[in-house]
Design a protein around this nucleic acid. Structure first.
Lengths: 229, 229, 229, 229
DNA sequence: AATGAATGAGCCTTCATTCAT
DNA sequence: GATGAATGAAGGCTCATTCAT
């Protein structure tokens, strides 16, 4: 792998500014985990060869084992180390907000949706769903630590909005699903079949429209609601 | 889907004239493809061993190769031979119906949702999404022959409903996604993370609630907005 | 290293009357185990590649796994399936004999020594000793099922001979060791360093001389036999 | 062994004139070789990782390569550097002694046996035997430089004892084997299967008994001693 | 001299695929 | 047509060896 650089003279090819060799060793696990997540997302667990991850991370196959004990550990690390940001972001949204619940709900929705549109976190979601059958522990972890918690956050806001009369009184659990589900699916879609659609989906618009329809529904506006046929 | 679609599954050539033994050989490919689909759905493509499929189909491993040239062909056959029913059902729904569009839409919605709640067809959907990265052709096939066509069917009905004033004038494409997406996600969910939720989801109710919220939205009744039910 | 039952090696039970292709499939495990034992003896466990065993057995590497679940199981099978003959032979020797004990002892000695001079069984003994540290269970098995049992057989005969006045009254345990130990070492020696001796050892003579010296000792003829110390 | 024997362990070049720091660098190779021998003895050559040796020696893995060019060189160094003491001790015994040969023989026997009961030297013997197949050169070295030389020492003493009428006239070579073999086997045994015996062997007693039986044999006290054959 | 992160060749093991019966 | 024993290519993992610091 090392071509010409047998000489002791430092090759000037790397314009590595100040900290000469510090970044590499420290960044290694992070780079590896990122490469792993990407490859796992693209190919699935079983079809991913450690060679692929290593190449993408710019290291040799053996190096992976300096940081992760085996393929499964690498998989779980890729999953777990990207789980927390989602939860933290959501919980902070709730904690920080005071005021009208519907505004909070919308803000929560936008932030959470944005996080799922992130290539990494969205890919993570798709990966876990695709591999749930083979990694029960990781699946359970994801459900309990992410799905249920975020759902719970949304539900509290929805219930408050209902109590305040800002939303129709409906089963909160179902309402939350109605809000979250299209975003989750979009996230999965973007990492699977979206590439095969003739025209790319406008994500921004999708999120906007969903929020609109979520609030107003599809029926015509009451006042001028026309008679059916 | 009109093309006769024999594809990878070789038709049992030489119709043996003897009616006694015809059923078995003819049934073989079907049994194999069913076993294959089930195993692929449960474990994913790479984690599925041909041994598993053979055992589940009640045949030997070598027999698989009498009908399908290799693992990938078996996968594609499993996918393709289960694609048609969904489309056919949907297209028939539209063709047969005459009358109020909203009623047709609801009927279409219920039938299509029911078909996705079928363990096999729902699993198929999840499978294709999970393996999209490794089987571009199959993914493209699914998008073009299933997703786009069903979407198109829905869109025509939605557009008619809008033209008739039964639905608010909105971007039809988006409206269709708003209707379909939660069902698709539910289908994926049931074959992945649903098992790790504390309480099982009531599918029937979910479908009902989604239709309700899809129509009415979440905001409170403007003044005389009628309660549903 | 746990030896929790190999069992992968199918017993060639059911002698299936049909002579055509019987020998090969039924002989396979035996051929494999023989090749394995030989290679393990020559190179030791870790330095033995399954490729070597397969080549020596005339099969492919994958075939080994049709009969033995992994390398360790193959090792243990090689050991265990060659253990019983030694014990059986020895126990039969005792059971069958009646008459003067010293004659029985000599007969026992010759038979047991002959079995250890067998290339396979002698190699087995050397192998177990060489790998004892890495396969405690197999080592314990060998000690308990072979070493202790044979030692016990010898001891009973020696004790009878002492009781009959045919041997000096000495600690039987030690006497047995004095008799067995050179043979055991010879067996190990022939499978390790013997090849590097300038002149090959005459095994027959060694066995004869040992029996003679075992009986008479090295001191000059009686009459003037000095007390030791 | 007269050759100065620097062999694989490179002498710390440039004797640094400064006495304070000499001991450490000079002690390094010795510490490494000791750690290597111990680990090789415990686990065998192939199962020994250089990591283990380095850790036991208290150095880093790379440091091993400062003193030994590779694993095999380390093995051979571990063997060779522990060979000399045994021979030297034996040769000195003979050279220094004058007087009755039988006394010398016993003294020689005791010293040599004691050296083989040393955990390191005994382990070395077992190690060489176990790995003989993989290290012909080392095996040959051991046979020629140790086995044959010690055997020769013993033989000279035995021959003298026979010439003096202190021992029966028998093939000296065989007599020497009769004397040495149980000790060698005991040494191997202690480093392999001894741990799996129910009761630990009393080494001291074993050595005593062997000497006794070696001299007197097993037959009852003279007077009625029967001719053999 | 000493370190230890990095490497990559090599081996065990699996499993899709073949073929003689 | 059907079987299943046999194959061998491929991939996960280990560890001796190297090299920049």
């Amino acid at each position: 792998m090392n071509d010409s650089e047998t000489t002791a003279a430092p090759d000037p090819s790397e314009p590595d500014a100040n900290p000469r060799w510090q970044r590499r060793p420290q960044a290694r696990p992070e780079e590896i985990v990122r490469a792993a997540l990407q490859t796992f997302v693209e190919r699935g667990y079983a079809a991913t060869r450690l060679d692929d991850i290593a190449r993408l991370a710019g290291v040799s196959k053996g190096t992976l084992y300096l940081y992760y004990s085996n393929k499964e550990a690498l998989f779980q690390a890729a999953v777990r180390e990207n789980l927390t940001p989602v939860i933290v972001a959501a919980e902070e949204s709730v904690a920080q907000h005071h005021g009208a619940s519907l505004v909070l709900l919308e803000q929560l929705y936008r932030r959470w949706a944005a996080s799922l549109m992130d290539p990494v976190l969205g890919g993570l979601c798709k990966l876990i769903i695709a591999e749930a059958g083979n990694f029960p522990d990781t699946a359970r972890l994801y459900v309990e630590e992410v799905v249920l918690r975020i759902r719970s956050i949304f539900r509290r806001v929805v219930e408050r909005a209902m109590a305040d009369g800002e939303l129709r009184p409906l089963p909160a659990e179902q309402v939350v699903r109605e809000l979250m589900t299209p975003i989750l699916f979009l996230s999965v879609w973007r990492h699977s079949l979206a590439a095969y659609e003739p025209r790319p989906l406008n994500t921004e618009q999708f999120l906007e429209n969903h929020w609109d329809m979520f609030l107003h529904g599809l029926l015509p506006i009451p006042g001028n609601r026309p008679d059916r046929k």
